[in-house]
Write a protein that binds this DNA or RNA. Sequence first.
DNA 1: CCTGCAAATGTTATAATGTTTCAAAAATTG
DNA 2: CAATTTTTGAAACATTATAACATTTGCAGG
Lengths: 163, 163
Amino acid sequence: MSERALPYRPHNHQACVSQALSEARSICRDQNARLTPIRERVLELIWQSHKPLGAYDILGMLGAEGHNAAPPTVYRALDFLLQYGLVHRISSLNAFIGCAHAGEYHREMFLICRQCGNVLELAAPALSKSIESSAKTEGFLPEDITLEIAGLCPRCQGDSSHD
Amino acid sequence: MSERALPYRPHNHQACVSQALSEARSICRDQNARLTPIRERVLELIWQSHKPLGAYDILGMLGAEGHNAAPPTVYRALDFLLQYGLVHRISSLNAFIGCAHAGEYHREMFLICRQCGNVLELAAPALSKSIESSAKTEGFLPEDITLEIAGLCPRCQGDSSHD
DNA sequence: CCTGCAAATGTTATAATGTTTCAAAAATTG
DNA sequence: CAATTTTTGAAACATTATAACATTTGCAGG
């Protein structure tokens, strides 16, 4: 995959969203999954925000653009996107974020800035391996690993006001 | 600290609860924190279950024993217990569990069996260190680390019915 | 084409989880 | 014991998520 901008660094965000959508379309095509207009729109909204978005945030945005949806519509779209690895759910925030590594096998690991709210998805296969092996040492068979690290991102350290 | 039984192994559960309560009392005494009757009762209920308990489960149990509490009562007790490290919150379950290492500095890491629901708190300082250093490699300052590993515990592997 | 099935969406209601606010009671301090 | 702080009670409300059932859409086989 091509290099990807960090959320807390300036970058061409529209291009970043487009790329994510185009990858998503390709992933769905390959798996005969239907990326319907609603699903695609939800994915786009999530990517546009680049910060975790709650289901009801999405619901509000859809409402604002005239699509008066009910909660199940959004949750169903999110379930679909989760199922195909296009978004992740961040339990500690009850929110959703675009997957930066869609299509690649990986464990979910997030760096969540408590100041600016940005989230970086960490790709660290070696770390995943140590986590798995720690579990196995206890005789435990790990299936779903979620690591959520809250703290301060580079930009927010020693600095007190970023959105 | 003395050795502690694994939740999925037979053990004298009442003794295990008593020990946890007695440790909790001692920790609170040392810090001039008031382990009031409600707080202690909530902690006891959580330990007795030995599986993660939702706030409304606790509320129901209190109700069943005649203490007709409202949600804030439970959430306040939980906040207190969290603050003093006597319980942990498991985000992926919206539930709470007794801390097996109260009083010791540690990161929170859980092995959650999807079959029997038991949760083991993993103490693996070396793993904590690697997680921290992975975050720091990205320039991120880690504060709160939560690792939740869902899968199958030893007892539930190759076996299909445990509570 | 069109018919019938499966997948997706719409709609209403409701469940589950968590918080705000203000008042009363209990404990602690001086 | 009076003043203050902490804790608890109680009611209402906010947020997050799901259940249940009706309707529509897309698509495969006749």
